[in-house]
Design a protein around this nucleic acid. Structure first.
Lengths: 348, 348
DNA sequence: TTGAAAGCGTTACCAG
DNA sequence: CTGGTAACGCTTTCAA
């Protein structure tokens, strides 16, 4: 049996209530008893049973993070370790712990989340996925669990932190247009994700503005994986009118694009230019290094926990239905995957 | 207020005990009441309060994972997402959740771990770090918490899963020796880590066996980071008798080595060869791609949870002090960072 | 097959 | 400033 509050109360010759107060830093307690209690606590290395504590106060001191898909495939993309980095760093400052939720499929993940939410294991939740068809969001909203999403939700009334992905998509595309590319393709993940939709919309906006004919546009969408990107782009490259540049919504996918281009006997950036997104470590390692849009993943994570704590705060003072939004800025990092296109005017 | 067992008992016209039994799948209960109860549970979307449950049964259904250093810097190295990948996958199969422990310094991390262990939030712990001076291990052993380490502990009597790092270090070095290198340097992380020590020992063994004079050996040790590796190696490269090859204990460090070599105006593999460790994603992205020893990180993670569950099992049946060891094999993956050295015999 | 009651370790309210 | 008591939501004897 572990040492309990009762035991230390006995040794100190006081009641459990007093010990509890001492622990909580309650001021109405004599300095001497406080000291005596503290000494015994240190001596015995006492730590309160969090389950008992959480049972009575309504806080668990931990927040839940819901990974997309199964934890297995999620960690494949460097995006996730990076957000987690931001999240854990911020959580540390608040003395909060982090419970991870995964699940090989949506059903078991839902079960997992329900257990931690209704099981009162977490005070709030950060969602790392914004898919259109996600029941989880409805569920969490209905349960009135404080939550914030990383990435724009496809529903109203949910707090989130995100980049301005349509702006970022637009800028990435314009970057290519300014350098004389006209036939530019967009490659993104599934259109069920808001990120994909937004970046594509940005791409479309830029193409519209530049007056590029629909025939010169190509929108590809597939899984967020290197292999699928490879397959998809390989097809396109063998068309007679292949694009001279790609806007790719994810560095990992860009890896697939690089592979496809090189397998097709073409070279980057001479034959095809690429600008991608996320600017994770690997983008400076590829050959050539990728020009990529830095989305400040770390900040996404940090800000998400700040917002979550604000929500938890509010929800305990019953100011229901508080939602907020925070946009972290993006920045295109120039590297070596873009060259001048066939329509370059020479003055960029 | 969330829905409780009491409430569903009322609606079903039975006692809380009965509902509890139904939930637990207790066979001594009539099919009809069970069905009725189940219907109400589904209807109300009831989930038990895990804190209350954990308070009485002595299991929390979650295990703790202790990250090295602060979570912040840990996620910088691709090794950690990858173990986590293995761990979460295996945990999923057991229906267990995962609580992460970090801490910007050893003191707060210790506090964090103590809270989750003595606070009965976890049934066991996986340690992701094997440093010599780690008080945490003593603490956990004294608390008799089921635990397994990933990486060889520097103490006896602790269950762990690891690679045979001295063998792997030896093989990596021999690979270079066979290809005609004699002046081979070893670059590792801090010698407070067992990995570093073991791989270096393997290097020494190979050099001994090949009869290489101590003057031709160089052992470098620094932080597990790209920057430090860069700095350390830059020094060495400017010595008149620079090594023709490096055994580098980590892919991320190898990145720094590559940078240093190229900054010194030398080329890989012509001027200096590299074999590194871990074989994470980036090792095939560098230019040239890194010949690296695959340590099967995923298996390290999976196996660790298997062992942990075995331990938890044993500990509940009070067969104290059960320890075990599992070695996952390694495999050198040949890529483009090694060429023949000055003493190549031509017949490798 | 089911119910009543005790107990898990804390906190919080009410007295004193 | 401190103690007694109830309560948190669940499981588990012990009886029926």
């Amino acid at each position: 049996m572990a040492v309990t509050i009762k035991e230390i109360a006995e040794r100190a010759g006081v009641s459990p209530s007093t010990v509890s107060r001492a622990l909580a830093g309650n001021p109405r307690i004599s300095a001497e008893t406080r000291a005596r209690i503290q000494r015994i606590i240190d001596e015995l290395g006492y730590h309160p049973n969090m389950n008992a504590r959480s049972l009575v106060v309504k806080s668990s001191g931990t927040i839940g993070v819901v990974l997309p898909r199964s934890g297995d495939s999620a960690f494949l993309n460097p995006f996730f370790p990076e957000v987690l980095r931001g999240i854990t760093a911020a959580l540390e400052e608040h003395g909060y712990a982090l419970l991870l939720a995964t699940g090989r499929d949506d059903a078991v993940k839902h079960e997992h989340v329900a257990r931690m939410v209704q099981g009162k294991q977490v005070d709030g939740v950060i969602l790392l996925e914004s898919r259109a068809d996600d029941h989880l969001i409805f569920y969490l909203r209905e349960q009135r669990v404080p939550m914030v999403m990383i990435g724009r939700p496809l529903l109203e009334g949910i707090a989130y932190v995100d980049n301005d992905n349509v702006l970022a998509g637009k800028e990435a595309t314009e970057y290519l247009l300014e350098r004389g590319h006209r036939h530019i393709a967009f490659l993104g993940g599934s259109l069920a994700y808001a990120v994909t939709v937004d970046r594509r919309d940005g791409y479309m906006l830029a193409m519209d503005k530049a007056g590029i004919a629909p025939a010169m546009r190509t929108v590809l969408s597939t899984d967020f994986s290197e292999e699928d990107a490879y397959r998809e782009v390989t097809d396109v490259l063998h068309r007679p009118d292949r694009p001279t540049a790609f806007v790719v919504a994810d560095d990992l996918m860009a890896l697939g694009v690089i592979g496809a281009v090189q397998s097709a006997g073409l070279t980057i950036p001479e034959d095809v230019s690429i600008v991608s997104f996320n600017n994770v470590l690997l983008s400076r390692l590829t050959n050539p290094p990728l020009t990529s849009v830095d989305i400040h993943i770390l900040d996404l994570g940090r800000k998400a926990v700040e917002m979550l704590f604000a929500l938890i705060e509010k929800s305990s003072s019953r100011v229901d239905h508080y939602t907020d939004t925070y946009i972290v800025h993006t920045q295109l990092i120039e590297r070596g995957s873009v060259s001048l296109g066939p329509f370059a005017s020479g003055n960029v």
